[in-house]
């Protein structure tokens, strides 16, 4: 997938537990605070339910739960990243999201074989900027895998 990334790309950086993740800005529609979430019974554990986003019903995925990181209580900093891919809109719950950065395309490296353990599937690439390590998530895989379960 690295081939497709050119020159400069904009990333939105968010935190999950103690790691920094990133998602391409063109996949993000908006970032929202957590409002009332309506639980949808009979769905995967990481699907927290649906919210009303200005008249549109959007399903919400808890990324911690999706990446099998122990879940946390939502705080003031908790954000919902509204992302869209292939006409599917979802909200991703993250611990916080407060940074947009520009990085050169060649700062991205394919994900190493072993980085954490569980997360590897959803990693598109990693970027190292100075001392920060950003994990670029693969939204398509984050969404797709759920259909099997």
């Amino acid at each position: 997938m690295v081939e497709t990334i050119t020159d400069h790309i904009k990333l939105i950086v968010f935190q999950l537990k103690d790691k920094e993740y990133a998602i391409a800005v063109n996949e993000v529609l908006s970032i929202e605070k957590v409002d009332h979430i309506t639980r949808v019974p009979g769905t995967s554990k990481y699907v927290k339910g649906v919210i009303n986003l200005r008249g549109i019903v959007v399903p919400i995925i808890d990324l911690r739960s999706r990446f099998e990181i122990d879940e946390a209580v939502y705080t003031e900093n908790t954000r919902v990243i509204i992302a869209a891919i292939n006409e599917i809109q979802v909200g991703l719950i993250v611990d916080s999201a407060n940074d947009v950065i520009d990085i050169a395309g060649d700062a991205l490296e394919p994900s190493p074989e072993v980085i954490g353990t569980e997360v590897a599937d959803y990693i598109k690439a990693v970027a190292k900027i100075n001392s920060r390590l950003l994990i670029l998530i693969d939204l398509e895989k984050v969404l797709a895998a759920s259909e099997e379960s």
Partner: peptide, 19 residues
Amino acid sequence: LKSLGDYLANVFAISGATI
């Protein structure tokens, strides 16, 4: 009547959502 969207298609006994 609002659809739950493609991501949550086929939820048992739920035909949609409303605001």
